[in-house]
Design a protein around this nucleic acid. Structure first.
Lengths: 235, 235
DNA sequence: GATAAATAATGACAAAAATCATTTATTGGG
DNA sequence: CCCAATAAATGATTTTTGTCATTATTTATC
């Protein structure tokens, strides 16, 4: 975790972030006061249960947001990408982080203290609006995940998760398609199953020529079939 | 679904609602413009997929919020109580309802059109603040449910759900404790399992003297034991 | 590039939970 | 209060998934 320097106006995802549209002066202040960190693959950004001092804006990389279940097993709640913000729920509610966040790749996140953040929300109503919309989207995603976990088989959920990951890993382009790179364990913790079960199902998908596997790199080669297996109607 | 008349200032849960604190004039206008409905047990308040024209403030009763899975099975996302608001996610995000809502008891809900609602959020920043906090709490609950569904056994989840329902049914007081009244099917759809499995586990809990069963009425008689089974640490 | 450590793969088995079939109870309407 | 309809309970069986053990492969490090 190394300190680095990044200016918002040079940030490729700034205009997709919730902060887009604040005036020159506030942006300069934000740039001066925020602290940007470089995280190596695997490093923890924050821990579940700890007080939230602010939020993290993802500049680069892929982040997993996860909770630890009662038996100590990880459950990945969601995958987050550049332009998304981490810790919003905790900062808004004033409660500790209800999940941990860790870098799946080498990543960069910028920390914004909550006082500064709240000041901006007061000054910019559209920021509050975007926060509400962001929370709404997260909630919709979580409700879908609940329904999926409760009703779908592991096989169906794995197909679904591979398709969702395909979106997250869109920066890992190969000539013909995105490449998902994730440990089997992380994949199991995302799908909500045992690692062995994921491995077996991946072999099956590979045998059926739905995916290609090279080590931990997975490429989807038959999307429509996976959509069918996953019973997924949203792209 | 019958129209009835209710004034917010006479509503027992008004001061616990997100609207508490608006001034006299806005309250009178809200009273004049909102429409309150009486729903009989089982009636639908709104349907998943339909456009959201506004939100519903629960005055009385118990509401289930549920989604229909790919095989047509209900999944109960959450139980809502008087003072809570329904349809917030849809109204905020401007998207259709992502779940349906139905009355579990005879219930009363007041409908507030979204234009009127948005006007209030602009005038009262504390309302926006409360909306964000409400969404944050819903999100935290959903994330917990995800972890529970992914990692706990049905037995554990049933214990957990019974304890959660005990909170929701606090108005059904008997001399010694709250009484949960819910069909086995609804309970199964809340826990995320088959109805038969719920029935078997309830018999087991009854045999172990953790609960008492009279028809569809369930009373918890050994909370600590259920907490232990559910591996639940939050009350 | 060799070596150890970590991860992935595979097999055998056990446990959990779903499904299907049937019987028993409960409830609500006439 | 009775009867039909609905819901609950129970049993038998199958399917799915998890667990444990072992081997193979990959990855990182010296």
């Amino acid at each position: 975790m190394t300190l680095i320097s990044i200016n918002c106006d040079e940030c490729p995802i700034y205009r997709k972030s919730i902060f887009f549209g604040i005036d020159e002066q506030d942006m300069v202040e934000l740039d001066n006061r925020k602290t940007c960190y470089y995280y190596k693959k695997g490093q923890i950004i924050y821990y579940e249960g700890k007080g939230a001092l602010g939020l993290y804006c993802i500049n680069n990389g892929k982040i997993k947001v996860f909770k630890i279940g009662s038996e100590g097993k990880e459950q990945i709640i969601r995958m987050a990408q550049p332009g998304e913000v981490l810790g919003l729920r905790a900062v808004i509610s004033g409660k500790p982080y209800s999940a941990s966040a860790a870098a799946l790749d080498n990543s960069v996140c910028c920390f914004i203290g909550k006082q500064r953040f709240f000041k901006l929300t007061i000054k910019y109503p559209q920021l509050s609006q975007r926060i509400m919309i962001t929370l709404s989207h997260l909630l919709e995603g979580a409700d879908n995940k609940i329904t999926s976990l409760a009703q779908k088989s592991v096989r169906e959920r794995l197909a679904e998760s591979l398709l969702a990951l395909d979106q997250v890993f869109h920066s890992n382009k190969s000539p013909d398609g995105n490449i998902i790179s994730l440990s089997r364990e992380d994949l199991a913790n995302l799908v909500g199953t045992a690692t062995e079960t994921v491995i077996r199902l991946l072999s099956e998908f590979k045998h059926d020529q739905l995916i290609e596997i090279k080590g931990r790199k997975i490429r989807i080669i038959n999307k429509p079939a996976l959509f069918k297996i996953g019973k997924t109607f949203t792209s």
